[in-house]
Amino acid sequence: MSNIPSELKYATSHEWVRAEGNGEYTVGITEHAQELLGDMVFVELPDVDDEVDAGEDCAVAESVKAASDIYAPIGGTIIAVNEDLEDAPETVNNDAYGDGWLFRIKASDESELDNLLDAEGYANSIDED
């Protein structure tokens, strides 16, 4: 069983969301997702200031195995992207919940967080995979 931190929220499409305060949220992919994908070779990120809707594909994680769309778990404005991944995409494998974060969103409607899963709900959802 892979690590699923209890303080984060999750989408069934394997993104995690961390509240940073002030309506800002950091997004990455779960340890389970990076295990499924294998070694990451390219990460394509959105541009800062992009407006995204919840569920919109806004990034691509390309691994040795497959290219995989990343969906915005909540809607809002992209306020930061993890540029370090350009040269070190393997950080997503090595530290999925830390330095391997993908982008940060300023939420347009924080109630969308309620549509996401808690750790237990996500653990159950990947059990069903």
Partner: peptide, 8 residues
């Protein structure tokens, strides 16, 4: 074995 941690 597909890999032992990291294919790369």
């Amino acid at each position: 074995p597909i890999n032992y941690g990291s294919q790369i």
